[in-house]
Design a protein around this nucleic acid. Structure first.
Lengths: 234, 234
DNA sequence: GAGTATTTGTCCGTATGTATT
DNA sequence: TAATACATACGGACAAATACT
């Protein structure tokens, strides 16, 4: 019985298995195209065809002059009605932390006013920061909360958690009213903060969270490193 | 009472309103920075600050040497447990259609086998196509379905609908088991099909749909034009 | 900083088997 | 059957980015 599966598919399957069993670990380099061609006894182009398949599936990424690297499997980031950022990464088996880079109270602009059902110029609390998974930046966030929540900023600074700070302000529970997700390209500053090249793909999510009574309590925008995160729905 | 809202915010709000009321239509150019500066009686840099705000919000896009253009409002694409592609765009008040570009049955590869709980080489039906909203391409999709669904391809061709074809094969209802969303850059071919430049941001969603008994019936991958679609959760 | 070797990306070509017309 | 198109596989050459000395 002749084997009719193309060579490149067989090679791709072999490499895929070796990545998934951990023989080639995330972040490490796999052998060069020339080395793989020698190992499988095929032409370099045949190896390239297989590698293209892996890259298309998001398993590897080639850097010219450097080699082909195994990508970390994107951190799953569940999106549900009752999702807390800090819990997500913990659930994914990663050490998830975040750093607040800005905490202030100021008048809101038109967009923020619309999202939070306020009128322009009303005071809002602003929290900006950076989410890290295993010490690697995965997301930038900017949360805007209505100014009626007195003492929110201090609570956020002390507890280093938006959820805990909301609880301290009497908002014990809140749910995700809606989330919009679009793809953008990283700006220079976003790229610098997320340690991505400018022009790298990022996911922008815009979410409005409401309290038990349906009143908006948080207008959050988050920019995820597109290749380090996958948002999971359902 | 003195007005304490910054000039640039007032200008941004004015332009935002003019875009949203349709005074400036998607795809068209808004007046030059110099013209806007003259209109509002401010320095060009103040106008630039306002325009930067609009661009950051995804309303406009500046092209050096050409001008500032109004972007089409992204089509909202709800993601729920029981979501049908064709219904989405209709619900968004747009004329949503899709064209199938490929219909065939062939042995599955390793990744498809894992997603559908099959073994590699088992026959699967493949449906590829293009989703259009108002005659503008918004998404590419590739659905893979287990080969045990006899007559699926013919049903899909006749009815031009995956949902209807599944119903014809006895799968009356199916739900979204999980969806993963990541951001990628458009490849050359994706860009050509979606009428986007290569390197434009796209959303890749990978979904597995299951029948009532929890058996996988569809492994669908969709690539959305990142700036023409926003996925809505909740 | 300069120079060299390595590695991937892209192009040229050739040949063969398979499926479609 | 013949012509055509397509996928697969191999070989070579050079460019571009990177790594290393």
């Amino acid at each position: 019985m002749t084997d009719r599966t193309p060579l490149w598919q067989a090679i791709a399957a072999t490499l895929r298995a070796e990545i998934e069993t951990g023989h080639y670990r995330p972040g490490t380099r796999i052998p060069s195209e020339a080395a793989l061609a020698a190992r499988f006894g095929v032409n370099r182009h045949t190896v390239r065809h297989a590698l293209a398949d892996l890259a298309e599936a998001g398993l590897t990424h080639a850097r010219r002059g450097a080699g082909v690297f195994v990508l970390a499997r994107p951190t799953d980031y569940p999106l549900g009605r009752r999702v807390r950022f800090s819990q997500n990464l913990a659930a994914a088996g990663r050490s998830g932390t975040h750093r607040f880079t800005r905490l202030e109270t100021r008048p809101c602009d038109a967009g923020e006013a619309e999202a939070l059902a306020l009128t322009q110029g009303d005071p809002v609390h602003l929290v900006e920061g950076l989410s890290l998974a295993d010490d690697q930046p995965v997301a930038l966030f900017r949360s805007v909360l209505p100014g009626r929540l007195e003492g929110f900023l201090e609570a956020a600074r002390d507890r280093q958690s938006i959820t805990a700070a909301l609880a301290a302000c009497g908002v014990a529970d809140y749910t995700r009213a809606s989330t919009r997700i679009t793809a953008k390209l990283a700006s220079a500053t976003q790229g610098a903060l997320l340690q991505l090249p400018q022009g790298a793909p990022i996911l922008r999510s815009v979410a409005v969270n409401v309290d038990g009574g349906g009143r908006p309590v948080e207008y959050g925008r988050t920019w995820f490193a597109g290749d380090r995160v996958s948002l999971v729905v359902g």
